[in-house]
Amino acid sequence: MYCFTHKKLILLSVSLFAAVAGAAQGKKQPISQPLVSHIYTADPSAHVFNGRIYIYPSHDIESGIKQDDNGSHFDMKDYHILSMDSPTGKVTDHGVALDIKNISWAGRQLWAPDAAYKNGTYYLYFPVKDKQDIFRIGVATSKKPEGPFKAESKPIDGSFSIDPCVFKDTDGSYYMYYGGIWGGQLQRWASGSYDANAKLRTANEEALLPKVAKMSNNMLSFAEAPKDVKLVDENGKTFLEGNNDKRFFEAAWVHNYNGKYYFSYSTGDTHFICYGIGDSPYGPFTYKGVVLKPVEGWTNHHSIVEFKGKWYLFYHDVQLSGQTHLRNIKVAELKYNPDGTIVTVDAYK
């Protein structure tokens, strides 16, 4: 677990200085402050286990790798799991839960994870490039929500790309949603098999769709071949790549509200978190609008969770560092309109 250190004091001082400087320049101020500042964190997958909020984020580090469109500078090496007894409570860092050196098949880049619980076991799902530099999705297990986790000896058969989200339906079934274009390599699987030279879709082509697969009973494999997640407009038509303020880019998340399924995601290069609503975990999901407006930094990645009758949006920006690859996680209350649509969140005021 984490104790207060000189490093944390430095990061807090940087944050306070930036806030004061921003206010002096008339810059918009954030509605929420970073949940932790002793390490850089991103892509927060939040869950409630045993009456406590557990957050499974990426752990950003400075690796010295030059920035590129494939995200090579996001060179994460391990995961730290965080927990809190309420959205405004003290945050505990439980230390390293899984290190890339303990994943036998991994090559590099531990990206955004997620977690699930079933029958006394906690499952940590993670994307990492294998030794051929292809993103696969692995799984590790623990008897405690904070870990440490032990990785399986190989990735999930049939898995690829990034950003796993594992959703538990009301009937006890579990589904994994995943995928991400550009650095997430989803475009390289468009033909059904991996093609390192595959191109991105052009503006007038149908946008690439995220994937979904029902999980097997042991939570270690897919029970079926992955399917496309249909994300459609009000006329039931899928988006073109040119509709990049609405089409899927990465960061899938699914939650259930009042009997409906909400599929939310990042639009990537236009920096929105958008969402659609459907009647089945498989979709189709009809686009309804924006969950979160663009944040400071290039990426946008979130999770949505209910806690004691209220809903919360976990997200990240770059308030502490001002650098794209060194992010910090935050939380804000999420509200719904009477018709079930989400009240759009602006992370700044």
Rank of each mutant, 00 (worst) to 15 (best):
P87G: 05
K66H: 12
Q109Y: 12
G22I: 14
A106F: 15
D133N: 06
L186F: 08
Y117D: 03
W111K: 01
L110P: 00
Q319F: 08
Q29H: 10
Y348P: 10
Y40A: 10
G147N: 02
S191G: 07
K8M: 14
G22P: 15
I156Q: 12
S193D: 11
D245R: 02
P87D: 07
Y348I: 08
H38Q: 06
H316L: 05
F285I: 07
A115Q: 08
Y54P: 05
R108C: 10
S321D: 13
S216V: 04
A112C: 12
G138N: 06
H80R: 02
G236R: 01
G22F: 05
Y2G: 10
I10E: 14
F314M: 05
W253P: 02
W298M: 08
K90S: 14
E62L: 02
K90T: 15
N328T: 13
V331H: 04
Y257L: 02
Q67T: 09
N244I: 11
P281V: 05
Y287G: 04
H73Q: 15
M176C: 12
P226Y: 11
M76G: 07
S32E: 13
I181Q: 00
S280A: 07
I31H: 00
T267Q: 02
V232Y: 09
P145T: 02
M84Q: 13
K230P: 04
N256W: 00
E206G: 00
G64L: 10
F248G: 04
H325R: 08
T170K: 10
D317F: 00
H271N: 12
S191A: 11
P294S: 04
T41Q: 10
R327Q: 12
Y54I: 05
G340K: 07
M1N: 12
N197Y: 02
G289P: 10
G95N: 15
W182K: 01
A347C: 11
A19V: 13
M219V: 01
A140D: 09
W189L: 04
D245V: 11
I329N: 08
L220S: 08
L98M: 09
L98Y: 09
P338S: 07
W189D: 03
T238M: 07
T92L: 12
N102Q: 13
R247K: 13
N50G: 07
T202E: 14
E205N: 00
Y40C: 09
T121E: 13
Y275M: 03
K214W: 01
H38S: 06
R201V: 09
E152Y: 14
G51E: 12
Y287T: 03
E234Q: 05
P164T: 03
Q187K: 00
S216L: 06
F4Q: 11
L16C: 10
P148R: 05
T202L: 04
N197F: 01
V290I: 14
D233N: 13
L9K: 09
G183M: 08
A23P: 13
T324I: 12
A116C: 11
Q323N: 09
D133M: 01
M219P: 01
Y177W: 08
F285G: 03
I39T: 06
K310G: 07
W311Q: 00
I273F: 00
A42P: 01
I65H: 05
F17L: 13
N256S: 13
F249V: 07
